[in-house]
C-alpha cells in the first residue's frame, strides 16, 4: 500500500467521524418538550414539564404540572371541559379552555416520524 492510500483512508475515516459527532451534538441540542400556555392568541408563558408547579392564569384558570404532565385543575367557567381533559405529557397534545381562550400545548413533543423506514434496498 502506498503512503497516499493510508492518507486517503485516514481522511475517509475522519469525515464520517466528524459528521457522526455533529449529528449526535445536533440531536442533543433539539429542545426537550415543554408546555406553552397561550391566552387569547398571545403567549402567556413557557414552562418546563420536569418541574412540578401550579400556574395561575389570570385568576380564571389554574394549570398544574406534576410528574411530567400538565393538566387544568381549575376553571371559572360553567362547562369545565378543560378540567376534565386528560393530562398532556411529552408525547404532545393540548388542552383548550374555550370560554377563557386559554390553550395549553406541548411544544417539541417527542417526535417519532423522523425514524428511518426500511424502504432502501
Amino acid at each position: 500500500m502506498k503512503r497516499n492510500d493510508w492518507i486517503l483512508i485516514a481522511v475517509l475515516t475522519l469525515i464520517p467521524a466528524i459528521l457522526l459527532t455533529g449529528n449526535i451534538i445536533a440531536a442533543q441540542k433539539i429542545a426537550s418538550p415543554c408546555l406553552v400556555i397561550t391566552v387569547d392568541g398571545s403567549t402567556f408563558g413557557i414552562y418546563d414539564l420536569n418541574e412540578d408547579r401550579i400556574i395561575d392564569i389570570n385568576g380564571k384558570n389554574t394549570c398544574t404540572i406534576k410528574d411530567g404532565e400538565a393538566s387544568m385543575t381549575y376553571a371559572d367557567c360553567p362547562g369545565q371541559n378543560c378540567v376534565h381533559s386528560a393530562a398532556i405529557g411529552k408525547e404532545g397534545g393540548s388542552i383548550v379552555c374555550l370560554p377563557n381562550r386559554v390553550i395549553l400545548k406541548i411544544e417539541n413533543a417527542a417526535v417519532t416520524a423522523e425514524r428511518p423506514d426500511a424502504v432502501t434496498g
Binding site: P16, A17, L19, E114, P116, V119
Partner: peptide, 15 residues
C-alpha cells in the same frame, strides 16, 4: 424517499 434522514445515514454508510 421523502423525508429520508440523509445526514444520519451518511457517516455510517461511509464507514
Amino acid at each position: 424517499v421523502e423525508g429520508f434522514p440523509f445526514l444520519w445515514y451518511l457517516p455510517i454508510l461511509m464507514l
